[in-house]
Design a protein around this nucleic acid. Structure first.
Lengths: 219, 219
DNA sequence: AAACAAAAATAAACAGTGTTCAGTATATTT
DNA sequence: AAATATACTGAACACTGTTTATTTTTGTTT
């Protein structure tokens, strides 16, 4: 009885598992190709056909693994958050004082935006990933953003315990700190620092951030 | 001699002037149609063909008045700046104290972004208008942004004269103030306040801005 | 090994996009 | 009335995201 059961079901079970694994692998193959093309040519300059060509499949095949282009953008947005989170985490290593960690985190945020403007764009500026969120209906609208912000909130709470930010309420200050960093970075990423001549943009950017750090330390 | 000169040239001069005027009028007609469609359906959802249809001309005609779609976006970006400048100017009317004017300006900035997210987007977030700037090569890269920022810088200089911001250098603080406002507004416009549940987004936004005002007053 | 069933991949089409250009219609000048 | 200059457009080009009917491949059963 048992051996017959095994004979009938085990082989097909093994195949099913392999197929599922292969399905995930092909999904990753598509994402990797998309990722590379987007970094090479920019998000606006890559079509589904380009991605299909890169992996040597027909365009229609992409739609067996992704509902639409927005879903691809969303998947890459999630991947960008993974890398972003890693960069922020690394910046905190071995630093005990929460205020020092806050400054380090700001610096890591800034450097990530400058060194990976495409990732920054898809995480915090582009419409596409959030449009896909619209069609997902989760318990939390935007878990990727939420988790990252959770860390900032807990960090500011620690700073408060160390006597900082006595006159400001935490969740509002958290949003304000994020806003300031995002404002500076998104102005740069979307080319709005062109109010300054080319030579002085970098200095303005850095000095504005220095001013921010200085202000934070007085609060 | 004189009358012959007049006969030969005045009619053709009159026609030339009328034609120039009509050319500008048609340009405006196109921009107005584009403007209306963009506000109705959003920037991503309007094609050149849609604009042509709205003014009852063929798509090719649009290209007699605009080099490409980016130029239309740029023209509307400039128009948005006109309205934005007007709103900021109005907010300052009848207020003598520069610090009060600064706060009022921040409020006007915020309200403009909330009430006209499309305008805010094309001024400060979209790529298209800046891509057109690339192909323009002016003395100043981005005069619209520059002029608006000039006012903020002069306002902060006045605040300094009144004893505020003693420990911060002006042009860096200006960029920082702009960044903070832009960060808050662009997070909202591009749907990144979804780290908060729908019910509390507005409160978070307002309270973060309140915190910012409070901090500015202590500097 | 052959027949059958299930899964995966695709060719082709649909309905659009921005943009260009040869040719037509209109207006103005001679 | 003929010639010229200006304004406009139909049609095409080379794309885009996406869907569907069909074919190919893979796995299972007789």
């Amino acid at each position: 009885m048992f051996s017959i059961f095994v004979m009938l079901t085990l082989p097909s079970m093994g195949v099913k598992e392999r197929k599922e694994r292969e399905k995930l692998e092909k999904r990753e193959l598509i994402l990797e190709a998309a990722h590379n093309l987007f970094l090479e040519r920019g998000f606006d300059q890559v079509s589904i056909r380009n991605i299909a060509e890169a992996i040597e499949y027909s365009p229609a095949t992409i739609y067996l693994y992704f509902k639409d282009k927005n879903q691809i953008f969303h998947a890459l947005h999630t991947e960008a958050f993974r890398r972003f989170g890693e960069a922020l985490y690394t910046s905190q290593q071995g630093i005990a004082n929460p205020m020092d960690r806050l400054i380090k985190m700001g610096e890591a945020y800034m450097h990530f935006a400058i060194n990976h403007p495409e990732y920054y764009d898809i995480m915090f500026i582009m419409k596409a990933p959030m449009e896909h969120v619209d069609e997902m209906d989760l318990k939390c609208d935007w878990p990727e953003g939420r988790k990252t912000h959770d860390y900032l909130e807990s960090l500011l709470a620690e700073c408060k315990e160390h006597g900082h930010f006595k006159n400001t309420e935490n969740p509002y200050l958290s949003l304000l700190v994020w806003s300031t960093m995002h404002g500076l970075c998104s102005l740069k990423v979307r080319d709005r620092l062109r109010i300054y001549p080319e030579e002085s943009r970098e200095e303005m950017f850095t000095k504005a951030f220095d001013t921010f750090k200085q202000i934070l330390l007085t609060l």
